[in-house]
Nucleic acid binder design. Structure first.
Lengths: 214, 214
DNA sequence: GTCTATATGGGGATAGAC
DNA sequence: GTCTATCCCCATATAGAC
């Protein structure tokens, strides 16, 4: 149950984000959201028109800035590289860090974003694919191009496949906030939470090796 | 709509598998299943007791043999290696091929399994995690141990993380049966379907490099 | 802007006839 | 084993008072 200090419109967004992250879009009902946010059911439709509109708003609030940051970091490292191409590691960092690193800020709200991010990356072949597509189209295009310039000898579709694998690996990293029952006995925790900096460096090490595989 | 040649119990399983693969477990209603299978709603509860029971049966039919095959292949390559450890590539093949390669058989039914497999690997932090856990506990344990023996200098939790990333990458490979809108323009298709042999070799190349990253 | 009340439909599950 | 009929709950969405 959220405090009443925030306005209704924001409380809806906060609760929706937490519950979507925790249970998925499909499994989260508007009713569950309004109970936690302590708002009226009708207010959801007043502000966001429909459940789909709410999902869109939740994703946009968090991922619009992240995707902006990704493109900014990409430009920064491209500029720093001058007329050469940035390294695969640098491109991967621009792609992965803005998303993974938000988890480092210790605020509760940001930790939901980790799981929400994981959930997004996994939404292939669902009714929400369209929403996700709209959010990430531009980023996908720019990074695909950047990888092609960094590895000109790799065929474009080979690079696309490897990016796809990278996204899957990243999604699993994002979900680390949720205890993974099968492997959890060997996964290290810090204060009951996974150490995000470690996750990020492990993820980048793994994906960089995969992207550059012979 | 399925033909009536198969008995009711099987038709339910076939339709459920296709729809679960296509739309996810949560989003697929029993009613949608019985329409396609052309059976009565009550028969689902008669044979499988509940929706959860049906999910369990669908997964077990396909993944029990696959997981058996995984363990068999692991034993084979461990035996062939004698007193040394199999290579990371060999272990990865034992882990990934039994799942990916079923897609090669051109039967329609097996192509659902690709997506179903992807969907399973993604079901972290949902109400279905328990079901998935039961199916894969043994396999996870054995392969974790195998990787540890192959890379004794890597910390166990480092290996667990890399296995987790590998599973995410594999999940994305499994979903290749569904057109990936964002990247699809550069992904190669053969006869409207992705070439599974190529996917498998790409996936193993990528994940082997990741697992062995410095 | 916020609420109550309700429309409307779909969901899983079951009783009981055949 | 199979079917009809139905229970009961929950879902999204909206109308209309305040």
């Amino acid at each position: 149950m959220l405090p009443m200090s925030e306005p209704t419109k924001i409380r809806i967004l906060d609760s929706a984000e937490r519950l979507f992250a925790h249970n998925g879009f499909e499994a989260t009902s508007l009713r569950a959201i309004i109970v936690e946010a302590r708002v009226n059911l009708a207010s959801v439709h007043y502000y966001y028109r429909s459940k789909e509109g709410l999902i869109r708003a939740v994703l946009e609030r968090r991922f619009a800035p992240i995707n902006q940051e990704r493109l900014r970091l990409l430009e920064v490292c491209q500029h720093a590289a001058g007329d050469r191409s940035p390294s695969v590691e640098q491109i991967l960092e621009a792609f992965l860090l803005p998303m993974v690193m938000v988890g480092i800020k210790k605020s509760k709200r940001n930790s939901y974003l980790m799981q929400l991010g994981g959930r997004i990356l996994l939404e292939s072949g669902t009714q929400f694919e369209r929403i996700v597509e709209d959010q990430f189209k531009e980023v996908a295009r720019c990074f695909l191009q950047a990888f092609q310039q960094a590895m000109p000898r790799l065929a474009p579709n080979e690079i696309a496949w490897r990016m796809n694998f990278t996204i899957g690996a990243a999604a699993k990293a994002m979900f680390a906030g949720i205890p993974m029952k099968v492997l959890s006995n060997v996964l290290q925790k810090v204060d009951g939470e996974f150490e995000v900096r470690e996750i990020a460096s492990r993820l980048i090490g793994y994906t960089a090796a995969g992207m550059k595989a012979p």
